[in-house]
Computed example of a mutant assay.
Amino acid sequence: MNTTFKKNQQQKTNMKKVLVIGLLVVLIVVAFIISMNTGYIRLSPLEVFETLFGKGTDKQEVILFEFRLPRIVISVLIGMALAVSGCILQTISRNALADPGILGINSGAGLMVVLYITFFPEKNFMSIMFLPFLSFIGAGLAAILIYGLAYKKGEGISPTRLILTGVAVAAGISSAMIVLTLRLTPESYQFVATWLAGSIWGSNWDFVLALLPWVMLLLPYIFLKAQTLNVIYLGDQMANGLGVAVERERRLLLAAAVGLAGASVAVSGGIGFVGLIGPHLAKQLVGARQQFLLPASALTGGLLVIAADTIGRSIFQTEIPTGIVVAVIGAPYFLYLLAREK
């Protein structure tokens, strides 16, 4: 009788979590619709509806299909990718403050992108498709450097040392990018400044096609590894006892997290804190079980970025980079988490 009661309670709890995830999907759809109506040139809901079905003017079709829709899709994709990347990093390191931006992974990816754009400024389709691979290399090298510097023989990696090392590496890479700007042309300098501010600079369908394969391949793989992440979070000793090859799985999951972060940076610039805020908010909504936490983190991250981008495009006459809007929320939240961890 007691077992049946517990089973029923668990089913009700799981159903509530599924409903929360469904609500997040609805909120993203609502934000998507609002974002299509919002911008320097406003389109009413009726005009958006007519344009979607081929009844809008040429000007309205260009605004919606060539500028807004690809940017909105990219906002959702990078929000999902960064949030899931942060969720993986927090789980495998058992560190609530882990985030690809804070740890310097985004900076490593960004440095490679800036170098490539600086020396090869032509933006054809093939170069755009190549950018995520280049970002992955930069992010991977940064991750290896951070891991090597934070590792201490006999102790492993402590959460505090990992964060401090990541912040230091990110600061060093950012300084290198600033030094790099001294030899740039005005056009290239404008790009670097835009990237550092966290603006979604890749906002056409070519960039969507460059990012989409990474998200479509890596997210399902990570979702399939949800139970493995649950076990890893229990600790290496227990995970090994349950038959999980901890080191191999950790490396594969870390590579997936780096791939998501690197591909996102290739089209979004230095947007930070999404990988920190998304998983934390999702955990408050659905708990710590990865089967629910991973999809909830993805949806929360996508909602956060699309909302920040919409606000940045509408609050003033001039566009505010998405990264700045996210940072206004994320920086105080990071300080709060840091104080709580102490």
Score class of each variant (00 low, 15 high):
residue 291 Q to E: 11
residue 292 F to L: 04
residue 237 Q to S: 15
residue 297 S to E: 02
residue 246 V to D: 09
residue 274 V to G: 02
residue 247 E to R: 14
residue 304 L to M: 12
residue 310 T to M: 12
residue 277 I to M: 14
residue 265 V to Y: 13
residue 269 G to R: 00
residue 225 K to C: 06
residue 224 L to V: 11
residue 266 A to M: 12
residue 237 Q to N: 15
residue 233 Y to P: 12
residue 220 P to S: 04
residue 227 Q to C: 05
residue 234 L to K: 12
residue 248 R to A: 11
residue 301 G to I: 08
residue 278 G to Y: 05
residue 298 A to W: 00
residue 237 Q to I: 15
residue 311 I to W: 09
residue 306 I to S: 14
residue 287 G to T: 01
residue 265 V to D: 04
residue 265 V to C: 11
residue 236 D to N: 14
residue 217 L to C: 12
residue 222 I to M: 13
residue 257 A to R: 04
residue 286 V to N: 00
residue 300 T to G: 05
residue 294 L to K: 02
residue 319 E to G: 03
residue 260 L to T: 01
residue 283 K to P: 02
residue 247 E to S: 13
residue 218 L to W: 05
residue 289 R to H: 08
residue 243 G to I: 08
residue 321 P to D: 01
residue 259 G to D: 02
residue 236 D to T: 13
residue 229 L to T: 00
residue 241 G to W: 07
residue 215 V to S: 08
residue 260 L to H: 01
residue 260 L to V: 12
residue 300 T to M: 12
residue 300 T to A: 07
residue 239 A to Y: 14
residue 302 G to S: 05
residue 230 N to I: 12
residue 272 G to T: 01
residue 223 F to S: 06
residue 281 L to K: 01
residue 248 R to Q: 07
residue 221 Y to I: 11
residue 221 Y to S: 11
residue 215 V to K: 06
residue 253 L to R: 00
residue 263 A to F: 13
residue 247 E to H: 14
residue 274 V to P: 09
residue 321 P to R: 00
residue 267 V to M: 04
residue 282 A to Q: 02
residue 224 L to P: 10
residue 295 P to R: 00
residue 280 H to T: 06
residue 254 L to T: 06
residue 320 I to N: 08
residue 311 I to E: 09
residue 245 A to S: 15
residue 287 G to V: 00
residue 281 L to Y: 08
residue 312 G to M: 02
residue 245 A to I: 13
residue 296 A to L: 08
residue 240 N to M: 14
residue 258 V to R: 02
residue 269 G to Y: 04
residue 266 A to P: 14
residue 242 L to Q: 07
residue 277 I to G: 01
residue 312 G to W: 00
residue 302 G to E: 07
residue 303 L to D: 04
residue 248 R to H: 09
residue 230 N to H: 10
residue 317 Q to A: 12
residue 286 V to F: 01
residue 290 Q to N: 10
residue 262 G to M: 10
residue 249 E to Q: 15
residue 297 S to D: 03
residue 313 R to C: 05
residue 259 G to L: 05
residue 303 L to H: 09
residue 297 S to N: 06
residue 266 A to L: 13
residue 234 L to P: 09
residue 317 Q to M: 10
residue 291 Q to K: 10
residue 312 G to T: 02
residue 288 A to Q: 09
residue 231 V to S: 08
residue 255 A to T: 07
residue 240 N to Y: 15
residue 248 R to N: 09
residue 238 M to I: 10
residue 214 W to K: 06
residue 289 R to A: 06
residue 302 G to I: 01
residue 245 A to F: 15
residue 277 I to Y: 07
residue 233 Y to R: 14
residue 305 V to T: 05
residue 295 P to F: 05
residue 309 D to Q: 11
residue 293 L to F: 07
residue 216 M to V: 14
residue 294 L to P: 02
residue 218 L to Q: 04
residue 299 L to W: 00
residue 279 P to A: 00
residue 275 G to V: 06
residue 270 G to L: 15
residue 247 E to C: 08
residue 276 L to P: 07
residue 301 G to Q: 04
residue 292 F to Q: 01
residue 287 G to I: 02
residue 310 T to Q: 04
residue 273 F to W: 08
residue 283 K to G: 00
residue 241 G to D: 12
residue 304 L to Q: 10
residue 319 E to Y: 08
residue 276 L to Y: 08
residue 255 A to I: 15
residue 222 I to E: 05
residue 240 N to H: 13
residue 227 Q to M: 07
residue 246 V to A: 07
residue 303 L to Q: 04
residue 272 G to R: 01
residue 253 L to M: 07
residue 286 V to G: 00
residue 235 G to Y: 14
residue 280 H to R: 00
residue 318 T to I: 13
residue 219 L to Y: 09
residue 235 G to K: 14
